[in-house]
Design a protein around this nucleic acid. Structure first.
Lengths: 275, 275
DNA sequence: TCAGAAATACTCTAACTGAGAACAACGCCG
DNA sequence: CGGCGTTGTTCTCAGTTAGAGTATTTCTGA
């Protein structure tokens, strides 16, 4: 199906009239989430360069459509760009989960020029401390609760209220990422992407509690998780020790092969929450 | 928070090195769905220009970042671009619903150059026949069943099997749009966006059946719709006449103010379906 | 050895589900 | 005009799932 050719190329260029166009830049930004000490945390970098120099922001950068020093053409897919930028700026590998979130193209979102950004959601298991690189002056896992984000709706325009304000429209992107994670815990086995290969039901419950920001009834959670076919599979092993303050040893489970949860684990309808 | 200025501009340009970059184009493509004669249909255009000249494709085009004849800078948001292109190419207005779907950036997806496209899902109520314009040689509402799409997974690489193949990766985008619509019928009042301001429960059920491609139990559907708070509100009116082959007059309802359906209307778990 | 803690199991009631039947109101046609 | 098929609406019933609370088991630490 190769319909490329000189004729078509000419047609296109005639219609394209590059001189009439302002350049557009395409970037990727990643909402990387993890659990650290029981708290849902997001990976932020401190911007070294203007605009928003000194502000915290989501790690990300330009999609490569350029030539290297050797003149070789670099063309990467958007997912690859997201992973590359994450590693370049923070040293963190998005090895557990990576999915596209949404694309933000408000003409005023970057004061420099027209920048359209494709946002990603990444989950990372038990990550090391980040190592800042590239345009990042610093990088850190930051508990989401410390950011004092408004709700997704309210954060849309204003950005974070108190706490550290984020650069650009990153407060909104973060809010959208959090909402996506919260929603997908309900009907997919996404929670297992926060955990290592083997985990207990209590650890799984801790993921739900951290992401949803709510207490979850241990007994009912246990029953529901085990009743969903393919969510978790028993390993037959138990933990080496009980909890640090006593308690029974727990069964260890592995993630099953289900891609969707039937029935779903719905979050309580009530409003409240957010810690 | 105006951090724009000559210094920052210079910084940015120093890092950007435009001469090292190949141009990137950003387009929008829209999966516009409607119900015509009870069949779920998608709006397609026939491409006038290469590549894929003569192929059917989703309506869409370049996001404006250009100067008009008067030299005025045109900067539109992505949503605006999607609506504009839809109307330019087909004459159809996305007045009922418009939401972003996903962004596709495979470096090989357009044989001409690097084109990143932001896909949208639009729903249209009782639309007229399209009027082709712009780069479209033709435009038509096409029943989705006629396209013989594979499932979302299988369609990813190969595009449509039999039936008319779509240009670029539009078969995959369409599959993703259909899956989004099917999923959102479950937990949002999206189905009402297929209907006019007043509708009967049976018409609402017809939307679910057309989009899901499955029969839905009339009695249970009725009960569930009325039991979800804020999904529909009674108008007190009834239809002028019963059905063409007899039958009782139906109560008329309006869309309620719920944004989420609690409890949700889950589609039957079974596989099958697709008409 | 005991108190507290955590994992797991059980109980109860309320709510919801799918399947089917029943009832109500209409158009059509003889 | 009156039965009949059609469609809208309500109801019944048994099976499943939900939330809340409690009980039991098996740990740790004092």
């Amino acid at each position: 199906m190769s319909i490329t050719g000189p004729d078509e190329e000419r047609e296109f260029l005639a219609a394209y009239r590059p001189e009439d166009y302002h350049p557009v830049a395409v970037t990727v930004d990643t909402v990387a989430l993890t659990l650290r000490g029981g708290a849902l945390s997001v990976l932020l970098i401190r911007r070294a360069m203007p605009p928003f120099a000194g502000f915290w922001a989501l790690p990300g950068g330009f999609v490569r459509t350029d030539k290297t020093a050797s003149g070789h053409l670099v063309e990467e897919d958007l997912d690859e760009a997201a992973m590359r930028e994450l590693t370049e700026e923070t040293g963190i590998l998005a090895d557990s989960h990576l999915e596209q979130l949404a694309t933000y193209g408000d003409p005023t979102r970057d004061p420099r020029m027209r920048v359209i950004t494709v946002a990603y959601l990444a989950l990372v298991v038990d990550p090391p401390d980040p190592v800042s690189g590239g345009d990042a002056a610093d990088a850190a896992w930051t508990p989401v609760a410390e950011l004092n984000l408004a709700t997704a709706d309210a954060a849309a325009g204003a950005g974070a209220r108190r706490g550290r304000p984020l650069a650009f429209d990153h407060a909104r992107i973060l809010a959208d990422g959090l909402e996506r994670a919260r929603a997908k815990l309900e009907y997919t086995p996404l929670a297992t992407a926060f955990l290592g290969p083997e985990f207990t039901i209590a650890e799984l419950r801790a993921v739900y509690e951290a992401v949803w920001g709510r207490r979850v009834h241990p007994g009912n959670f246990h029953r529901k998780v085990l009743s969903v076919p393919g969510f978790v599979v028993e390993t037959g092993q138990v933990t080496e020790r009980g909890g640090p303050r006593g308690g029974r040893r727990a069964q260890l489970y592995r993630a099953g092969d289900a891609r969707l949860l039937h029935p779903a684990l719905l979050r309580p309808a009530g409003e409240g929450a957010e810690q």
